[in-house]
Design a protein around this nucleic acid. Structure first.
Length: 397
RNA sequence: GGGCAGGUACCCAAGUGGUCAACGGGGGCAGACUGUAAAUCUGCUGGCGAAGGCCUUCGGAGGUUCGAAUCCUUCCCUGCCCA
C-alpha cells in the first residue's frame, strides 16, 4: 500500500505521533516494521480501554507490520508508577505466570496471531549485571526522571517515591533497545516512558523508535481512566449481559468516543450519530443501545448481542425479569429470607441482608419483601431480585 | 545518627479520656424519578441478634485507668529538616 494511504489509516484516532516525518521515513523503507507494545502483567483481564491500543496494533498488523508484545514480567515486579499516587504492589512470579496465560488468549482475540511475537522482558533485563545496569542508569539524569508529573507531585505532597520506581522508565526504555522497536504504542499517559525509549535507543546508536500515543478511554464512571483498579472497566470476556449493561451505564457524553475508539462501526455511521446527538434529533439512549449491541457483537456474536439487548429491554424498560438468570439450589425446603440471601451469596452478611430488606431492595416473585423474619417455602422455584439488576432463581432439590 | 510531624474504616480525612461503630467528603449499594445500570434527589454503608443489647475495629505489642482512637512504654512504617 502507498505510504500516504498507510499514514492516513495509521493516524486515525491517534493522539500524537512523535514524529510523523520519522514515521514516513520508516514506512518508505517498505519493510515489516516492529511495533512494540508493553503489557503489564498485573491483571488477567483485558478491558475496552486497553483494546484501544490493541486495535491500533491490529490495524498496523493488517498493513503488514509485526506486533512485538513485551510482557513486563520483570518490570511487573516493580510496578509502573504511572498515574498512581502511591506505590503499586509488586507481583510474584507465579502470579505473573498465571495472569499471562489468560492474557495471551484474550490478546489474540484482537491481534493476528501470525504476526505477533510474545517476549518477556526478564529475558534481557534479568541478565543485566549490576555493572550493565549502572551503565544504563548513567544515561539518564535524576532531574529528567523527576520531571514526571507523578513523581514531582508525589514529592511535593510528601508521598513516598521509591528507588525502584524511578528505575521503571529506564527498564521500559531498555526494552525498546533490546527488541529494536520501530514504533512503540501506548496511552497518552505513557508518553514519558515511551520517550525514554527513544532517547535510550539513540544512546545505544539505534534508530530511535517512533512514539505513537492513543487517547485514554474513560471507564464506566465517565471520569477516570478505565482501569481494573478503579473498578470502572468493561472486560472483553465478560458475559454479554454484563457487558451490555455496563456499556449502557456510561455517561452520554462518552458515546461517540466509545464508538470511535472501541468499535468497528463505519466512520460515516459514527458521524451520523454525532450530528444527530448534537442536534438532539435522537435519544442518546438509543445510540448507546446501538453501541452496546455493536461491542457485544464484536466480542461475542450477533446472536448474543441481540439476546443481551432483548434482556436489557425486558429488565429495565419493562421492569420485567430477564430470560436467562442464575440458579441457586438450596439444600433446605424452608428457611428465613435473611439466611437465604446470605447462603445464596446475594448478600455478604446477615446485617447487610437486613439492611437491604429495610431499604426495600429485595423482591420475591415480583413482590417487595418488607419483613426480615419472612419464612420462605421452596416447594416451587422462586425468583429473588436484589436491587435493580441482580436476579437469582432459587429452588430446593 | 539527631530533631520535628504523622500512621483512623474501601480511599481522603475529623476526632486528643466516657455522649465513638467513630463528623465530613469520595467511592460503593439501595430507594424515588427517568431516556438507561446517564443526570438529579434521598437513605444506607463492621459483625451477631426479632429487639434491648452484645462482640470486634483507629500501625503492632504491652501498660495506666472503673473506662482509651485519645495518656504512658516499646517496636514497626512514612514525610520534612539537620548530619
Amino acid at each position: 500500500m502507498e505510504v500516504e494511504k498507510q499514514l492516513q489509516i495509521i493516524k486515525s484516532n491517534v493522539a500524537e505521533i512523535i514524529s510523523e516525518e520519522e514515521l514516513v521515513k520508516k514506512l518508505k523503507k517498505k519493510r515489516h516494521l516492529r511495533i512494540k507494545l508493553g503489557i503489564d502483567p498485573s491483571g488477567s483481564e483485558i478491558h475496552l480501554g486497553f483494546s484501544v491500543v490493541l486495535r491500533k496494533l491490529r490495524q498496523l498488523q493488517d498493513l503488514g507490520h509485526t506486533a512485538v508484545i513485551i510482557v513486563g514480567d520483570f518490570t511487573g515486579m516493580i510496578g509502573d508508577p504511572t498515574g498512581l499516587s502511591k506505590t503499586r504492589p509488586k507481583l510474584s512470579r507465579e502470579q505473573i505466570k498465571k495472569n499471562m496465560a489468560k492474557y495471551k488468549e484474550q490478546i489474540l482475540r484482537i491481534l493476528n496471531p501470525e504476526h505477533t511475537e510474545f517476549t518477556y522482558n526478564s529475558e534481557w533485563l534479568g541478565s543485566l549485571t549490576m555493572f550493565d545496569f549502572i551503565e544504563l542508569a548513567s544515561k539518564y539524569t535524576v532531574a529528567r526522571i523527576l520531571e514526571r508529573d507523578d513523581f514531582s507531585q508525589r514529592l511535593k505532597q510528601g508521598i513516598p517515591v521509591y528507588m525502584h520506581e524511578i528505575i521503571y522508565p529506564l527498564c521500559q526504555g531498555y526494552d525498546s533497545v533490546a527488541i529494536k522497536a520501530d514504533i512503540e504504542l501506548g496511552g497518552t499517559d505513557q508518553k514519558f516512558n515511551l520517550l525514554v525509549g527513544r532517547e535510550l535507543m539513540r544512546e545505544f546508536n539505534l534508530e530511535p523508535q517512533v512514539v505513537m500515543t492513543l487517547p485514554i478511554l474513560e471507564g464506566t464512571d465517565g471520569v477516570r481512566k478505565m482501569s481494573k483498579s478503579f473498578g470502572n472497566y468493561i472486560g472483553i470476556t465478560e458475559p454479554p449481559a454484563e457487558m451490555f449493561g455496563k456499556i449502557m451505564s456510561i455517561p452520554d457524553e462518552l458515546i461517540i468516543k466509545y464508538f470511535e475508539l472501541t468499535t468497528d462501526a463505519f466512520p460515516h455511521r459514527i458521524e451520523e450519530y454525532r450530528t444527530a446527538l448534537r442536534e438532539g434529533s435522537i435519544n442518546p439512549r438509543d445510540v448507546k443501545f446501538e453501541l452496546a449491541k455493536t461491542i457485544v457483537r464484536m466480542y461475542h456474536s450477533a446472536r448474543a448481542a441481540q439476546k443481551a439487548a432483548d434482556d436489557f429491554e425486558r429488565t429495565f424498560k419493562k421492569k420485567g425479569v430477564p430470560k436467562h438468570i442464575k440458579e441457586y439450589i438450596s439444600k433446605k425446603k424452608e428457611m428465613g429470607i435473611v439466611d437465604l440471601l446470605v447462603e445464596s451469596g446475594l448478600m455478604h452478611s446477615r446485617s447487610e441482608a437486613k439492611r437491604k430488606i429495610r431499604e426495600g431492595a429485595i423482591d420475591i416473585d415480583g413482590k417487595s419483601v418488607k419483613d426480615i423474619g419472612l419464612k420462605i417455602k421452596l416447594q416451587k422455584p422462586i425468583i429473588i431480585k436484589a436491587g435493580k439488576h441482580r436476579f437469582l432463581k432459587v429452588k430446593s432439590r
